[in-house]
């Protein structure tokens, strides 16, 4: 398996050569992590998407000058923090954690306070998603459940999971995917309904 940094660097080089699809893949990989990071800085959750979007657009514009001295995620996290701070300044609000480091922000148990600011509809949806995913996980075949739990709960790499489950890495990859697919079958309709209701209101 390739390490994160070399894969990111390969994608960055493709973007620098003008391949925009490579940047789409970087967005796909990091948008949620950046969203969580930004959400820890902003008081208003509804501002998060705008700041995340600004972060990636700024990163894209600055990418030609990115030399790979640091990891891509470190670089984009720094952009995200600065964008969030600038957003707070522009909104004449004070950042709750001006001296917060990237790692501090990641380790900060933010989801709890974030939930306090979530809208009631979102809270209901989050609860429903949680319930459905828990049920879906409990109904998975044992080998799929073990693979997805080792990955998501324990944070093990595919190599380590392969050793733990005594099977090839390809099998691990397949099991994790099948587990996600099975869970997603429950999740997707929920999100579609929510989006549909949101657009109607």
């Amino acid at each position: 398996m390739g390490d994160e940094r070399s894969i990111d660097q390969a994608l960055v080089e493709r973007v620098q050569q003008g391949d925009k699809k490579a940047f789409d893949l970087l967005v796909l990989k990091y948008q949620l992590r950046v969203s969580k990071l930004v959400a820890r800085f902003l008081r208003n959750p509804s501002d998060v998407p705008d700041v995340v979007q600004d972060t990636f657009i700024k990163a894209y514009k600055a990418l030609p000058s990115f030399r790979g001295d640091s990891a891509f995620y470190t670089w984009i996290y720094r952009i995200a923090i600065n964008t969030a701070k600038n957003h707070l300044v522009s909104m004449s609000r004070k950042s709750p954690t001006n001296s917060m480091d990237v790692q501090d922000a990641e380790d900060y148990g933010a989801s709890d306070w974030l939930k306090d600011y979530a809208t009631p509809e979102r809270k209901v949806l989050a609860d429903e998603i949680q319930l459905n995913i828990n049920q879906a996980v409990s109904q998975l075949p044992a080998d799929l459940r073990e693979a997805i739990m080792l990955r998501e709960m324990e944070g093990l790499s595919y190599e380590d999971i392969a050793i733990a489950m005594d099977c090839p890495i390809g099998t691990v990859r397949s099991r994790i995917f099948r587990a996600r697919e099975a869970i997603d079958e429950r999740l997707e309709p929920l999100l579609d309904d929510y989006s549909h209701n949101l657009s109607n209101t």
């Binding site: 967005v27 949620l32 969203s35 959400a39 894209y60 979102r122 998603i129 998501e152 996600r180």
Partner: peptide, 30 residues
């Protein structure tokens, strides 16, 4: 995004930020 959300839910870290998907907007902007 849903795969990330599944991971967050399994870890009990599901939050509002887990549902953010701005990829389409970013693509349009870019």
């Amino acid at each position: 995004t849903r795969y990330h959300m599944i991971g967050d839910a399994i870890r009990g870290e599901l939050s509002d930020a887990s549902m953010v998907d701005v990829s389409t907007q970013i693509q349009r902007a870019l």
